[in-house]
């Protein structure tokens, strides 16, 4: 499983940082997403799916492992 975060698309709403501050932060400059851990353990799958669903700009993508 792999997360990508597109800072160009990001609107700095901070849903990701609110939900999982250990995986995401926001830049001080413009609040856009900073990915702290692109490959967290499989145990975080549910929370990552929630983050993808709540990201208002579609900046965060999740590539799930085949068969997962």
């Amino acid at each position: 499983m792999r997360i990508t975060a597109n800072r160009e698309v990001c609107c700095s709403a901070g849903q990701c940082t609110l939900i999982a501050p250990d995986l995401f932060d926001q830049s001080d400059e413009d609040g856009s997403v900073v990915l702290l851990d692109a490959q967290p353990g499989a145990g975080r799958l549910d929370v990552l799916r929630e983050i993808v669903s709540r990201c208002p700009s579609g900046a965060i993508r999740l590539e799930e492992d085949p068969g997962a």
Binding site: C11, S12, T17, Q26, D28, E29, D30, G31
Partner: peptide
């Protein structure tokens, strides 16, 4: 974007 930095979590 000029002010979002002030309103982060």
């Amino acid at each position: 974007k000029l002010i979002t930095g002030f309103f982060t979590v």
